[in-house]
């Protein structure tokens, strides 16, 4: 594992092995090999663009769904969490401490669509005892990137 490479890639997934090698003072071959190894080991799970979907089209809706779940003997929350994760509508699933158990991020085209997905799919799962749907109204920061404050460099162009 190589934390320095991971840190640079998590800031910019498009950084090339060559650029990373230059920045860290290492060889390109070494960095490329490390990255391949971390990909194989599943430490790096993907490279994706951070998209501001609200700017792309206004008909995208996201919601965070809180699920209360009765854990199963021997399986705990694993079975239901993995089942929920299989839905393509579901972007992320987390097991939480506190008053509910699973936090599920769902994306759909309309409020109606997301609400129906919760009603028909999530709440009908046997071990799910309660759901609460919170719609996202506006996104301010996604994956460390501030979405509305695009140029916050208030320095001048030249300064000696």
């Amino acid at each position: 594992m190589d934390r320095k490479i991971l840190k640079l890639l998590s800031k910019n997934a498009r950084a090339t092995a060559k650029e990373i090698a230059v920045m860290l003072g290492r060889t390109e071959e070494d960095v490329a090999a490390q990255i391949r190894e971390m990909e194989k080991a599943g430490l790096i799970r993907g490279y994706k663009a951070v998209v501001d979907w609200e700017a792309v089209d206004t008909t995208t809706v996201s919601a965070i769904i809180e699920l209360k779940v009765t854990p199963k003997a021997g399986l705990g929350f694993e079975e239901v969490a993995e089942r929920v994760a299989k839905y393509p509508e579901v972007e992320s699933v987390y097991l939480m401490s506190g008053v509910y158990d699973l936090s599920v991020m769902v994306r759909g085209k309309t409020f109606q669509e997301v609400a129906m997905f919760v009603a028909k799919e999530l709440s009908t799962i046997d071990s799910v005892t309660q759901t609460a749907t919170h719609f996202v109204l506006r996104r301010y920061k996604e994956m460390d990137i501030e979405l509305h404050d695009r140029n916050n460099d208030d320095r001048s162009t030249f300064l000696l």
Binding site: D153, R155, S156, T157, F158, L159, L160
Partner: peptide, 24 residues
Amino acid sequence: GIRKFFDIAATMDDVISLGVGEPD
């Protein structure tokens, strides 16, 4: 010595600067 450059840059939209001696 950079007054002139200020004036040119002021007329442009898409300037990418490596001109500032100040931490970001």
